[in-house]
């Protein structure tokens, strides 16, 4: 990636998926720091404390099906955050479901770039991030 690396926030209640995805992403050349969260609430709590968001692009990979606060509820809370935070984050949702209503619901959100099916395809993710960064620069 010509623009340098992206930082990743992974939010998933499933430990196996969390560790597999974080390792898979770690093996690629476009990922910098990876931070994992086992619940949406923990992520939202931490997000406001994370420093240096503006230094490089950040990518949130948010699982849809989680107990307690699920991906959609997390997204609602996220959309209340100030622009100064959201501006630096690209949001992707992750789902092992191929339920169309879920996909439609997520992609209707202005914050979500895309719903990605599990298992995570890191090359597709890379490509989507690149496209998105290019679009942003054109704007």
């Amino acid at each position: 990636m010509s623009t340098g690396k992206v930082n990743i926030f992974l939010v998933d209640d499933n430990d196996i998926d969390l560790s597999v995805n974080s390792k898979l992403l770690g093996l690629t050349d476009f990922v910098g720091e990876i931070t994992t969260f086992t619940s949406a609430r923990k992520f939202l709590e931490e997000l406001e404390r994370i420093e240096g968001l503006a230094k490089q692009p950040n990518v949130l990979l948010l699982d849809i099906m989680m107990p307690g606060m699920d991906g959609f509820a997390c997204l609602d809370a996220y959309s209340q955050l100030p622009d100064s935070i959201r501006h630096h984050i690209m949001v992707f949702m992750l789902s092992s479901s191929i339920d169309r209503n879920d996909i439609r619901r997520a992609e209707n959100s202005p914050h979500v770039i895309r719903v990605l099916e599990k298992p995570l395809d890191v090359y597709l993710l890379k490509r989507l991030i690149e496209n998105n960064l290019m679009d942003q620069r054109q704007v």
Partner: peptide, 14 residues
């Protein structure tokens, strides 16, 4: 689509 596929997908990831 949710419950049955989720563990299959985890295996695929691993």
């Amino acid at each position: 689509s949710h419950d049955l596929r989720a563990p299959v997908v985890s295996i695929m990831g691993v």
